[in-house]
């Protein structure tokens, strides 16, 4: 009963509404602006949320991937459409490779115990702290002059995989530890090899862990700007790089910029709605288990 009383406290609800407005407000404002013409953006008499919406901004951003030709676009700039394809390709491949290699390594570390658990978490922590800004100079130098991978998909996927592996290995480890060893022994009796056990027995069980790891990796790769900016060329550029390049000091076409921003934000937002539980697992595991 006491609980009920607290819940119906009006100040409590007011606080909740405030919080919701504060965290959603900026996102909704961006969404609204992406449907606004540039004239309306600069017209002070037009409200932030009440105006005649238009999908023109999205049409001009996506003009080269649309099945029809938008009438208001005189010159179709293919940059963004291409970048969207690049971003999707790079993010999906990097996530896939990171997950497969990460699962293999995590499994080896848990089941064969040749490196102490604390060494692994220490290394993970140390790797986690390395900021992309620190990697900028060496990765640029090595990728350009030694590996010859600048401007290629392979080059950027290599560094993204390396950046995300420590966290993925570490989080999958905590899930693999919980897989009952009897299951694996039973499979071994039936004549399954290590690889088969890993991919057919263990992997299906640790699906929640894989989902958490996949979302974290995808999000980091999808949002990454710094290294993409240093390594990629005109044809392989990702969305964050094109956005930064299109911002000039003055005279920003806010409607179009917000539409590109929205398109960049949509995949992570969808993941949040689909798998908030896994995201929270991944996040709390980082701190609560140290």
């Amino acid at each position: 009963m006491a609980m009920q009383n607290k819940n119906t406290n009006p100040t409590f609800y007011l606080l909740m509404i405030c919080l919701i407005v504060m965290s959603l407000g900026p996102i909704l404002l961006m969404l609204a602006t992406s449907f606004k013409t540039n004239v309306d953006v600069y017209d002070v008499s037009v409200g932030s949320f009440f105006f005649t919406p238009t999908i023109r901004n999205y049409e001009s951003v996506l003009c080269n991937v649309l099945w029809y030709e938008p009438s208001h676009v005189d010159y179709c700039d293919p940059t963004f459409g291409r970048a969207l394809g690049n971003s999707l390709f790079i993010a999906i491949i990097s996530t896939g490779i990171t997950l497969v290699l990460g699962t293999m390594a995590a499994y080896a570390l848990v089941r064969f115990k040749f490196i102490g658990q604390s060494t692994v978490s220490m290394t993970t922590l140390l790797m986690r702290m390395v900021p992309p800004a620190v990697l900028l100079v060496p990765v640029f130098g090595i990728w350009t002059f030694q590996f010859g991978l600048d401007g290629t998909y392979a080059g950027i996927i290599l560094i993204y995989t390396a950046m995300n592996l420590p966290f993925v290995i570490w989080i999958l480890q905590s899930f693999i530890v919980q897989v009952p060893i009897q299951l694996e022994e039973a499979a071994k009796m039936d004549g399954a090899g290590s690889m088969q056990i890993l991919f057919l027995v263990v992997m299906p069980i640790i699906k929640p862990g894989l989902a958490a790891a996949a979302i974290f990796t995808f999000r980091i790769v999808w949002n990454e700007f710094l290294l993409g900016n240093a390594l990629l060329d005109r044809n392989t550029r990702t969305v964050p790089v094109t956005i930064v390049n299109s911002i000039t000091e003055y005279d920003i076409d806010w409607g179009v910029i917000m539409a590109t921003g929205m398109l960049l934000a949509i995949p992570p937002l969808i993941f949040t709605f689909l798998a908030s539980k896994q995201i929270i697992t991944g996040m709390t595991a980082g701190a609560v288990k140290g």
Binding site: I27, L29, T272
Partner: peptide, 24 residues
């Protein structure tokens, strides 16, 4: 539901967060 709403800002690209605030 509240938790989902609170996670949203963290999931968005820093680039986009910068854009949003620059606009505001």
């Amino acid at each position: 539901v509240l938790r989902v709403i609170f996670i949203l800002p963290m999931m968005i690209a820093p680039i986009v967060v910068g854009l949003m605030w620059r606009y505001m």
